[in-house]
Simulated assay, not measured.
Amino acid sequence: MSAGGGTKAIVAALAANLSIAAAKFVAFVFTQSSSMLAESVHSVADSGNQALLLLGAKRAKRERTPEHPFGYGRERYFYAFVVAVVLFTIGALFSLYEGVHKYQHPEPISSPIWAFGVLIFAIIAEIFSFRTAIKESNLVRGDQSWWSFIRRSKSPELPVVLLEDLGALLGLVFALFGVSMAVVTGDGRWDAVGTLMIGVLLAAIAVVLALETKSLLIGESAGPDVERRIVGALTGGPEVPRVIHLRTLHLGPEELLVAAKIEVAHDDSAAEIARGIDAAERRVRAAVPIARVIYLEPDLYREAAPVDATPDGTPA
């Protein structure tokens, strides 16, 4: 994912959520609807989350230091994880608390026309934000399914914005359902039901985001296709007959560490081995431009010892 694409989707979502949050708070003042209050807090939390993503992207661009020799690329993963925490603690828990409270102490919806007007406006604004996130994601998603893209993307911003926008749209539908049923039936508990539905939705999205960003924080390898290209590049010249083993690690969405033990001929000189390693590194960087840090260890290939062999490799 290009940084520009992710930033465009984040800014679009931030602009939509700020305007929607203001409108929802106005509607809450006039209606005293718990669904509207939950949606107001939801939009404020989303706005804060988009600001965190922008902050993470900026901090990740800092130059490497002796204390952080591989740079700060993973700051994007850290701030995406914070987004999940904020979404759960502020959005989900508040909505669940407010829903339970209003279910136990229901109140009628006053001035429902404000709620309907704001919810319709918010749905239209969220559709435009969601459309931007979809367009930017399609530029990098390839033939992956949406779920696979969210699960496997090494760039956290677009999956986060996609899930937030989807959650926002569904939350608005739930709020519209709760307010409508409360107005039609005259029973304020329906408003509380809509609020509880919003809380459960936000909690589910927060859990998915937390699990995926936790995996990125711990450290994920490159995908199978990328690793195949790396192996192909390493063995694409006469200097490297075989890759004995390969390890990859994402230092950030656009920075990959490659460590490999490669076979060299037993009679190669040190100078020949060094030239071969340099050539192999150039091929890898050409095939996988995000391979910024490459460590290649030359070795002699040894066939795996038979199962019944002694520790020194001779037959038992």
Rank of each mutant, 00 (worst) to 15 (best):
S2N: 06
T7Y: 00
A12D: 01
A15P: 13
A16N: 08
N17M: 13
S19C: 05
F25K: 04
F28A: 13
F28D: 06
S35A: 15
V41L: 12
D46M: 00
L54W: 01
A57P: 06
P66D: 08
P69M: 06
G73N: 14
Y77W: 02
V83W: 01
V85G: 08
V86K: 03
L87V: 08
F94G: 10
S95F: 03
S95V: 14
H101Q: 15
K102D: 05
Y103G: 13
H105G: 13
S110M: 15
S110E: 15
S111Q: 14
A122I: 04
A125C: 04
E126G: 14
R131C: 01
A133F: 05
I134T: 00
Q144V: 07
S153P: 06
S155D: 04
P156C: 09
P159M: 03
V161H: 00
D165K: 11
L166F: 10
A168M: 01
V173P: 11
A175K: 01
F177G: 00
S180P: 09
M181P: 00
V184R: 15
G188A: 07
T195V: 05
M197Y: 06
A204D: 06
E212P: 04
T213A: 03
S215E: 12
E220Q: 08
E227I: 14
R229C: 14
G232W: 01
P241G: 05
H245K: 14
H250Q: 13
G252C: 13
E254G: 10
V258I: 14
V258L: 01
K261F: 13
D268A: 12
A270I: 12
A271I: 15
E272W: 10
R275K: 15
G276K: 03
I277K: 12
I277A: 06
D278C: 02
R282S: 10
R283I: 15
V284L: 08
R285Q: 09
V288H: 02
I290N: 11
V293A: 03
E297I: 13
E303R: 14
A304H: 13
V307L: 14
P311W: 01
A316L: 12
A316C: 12
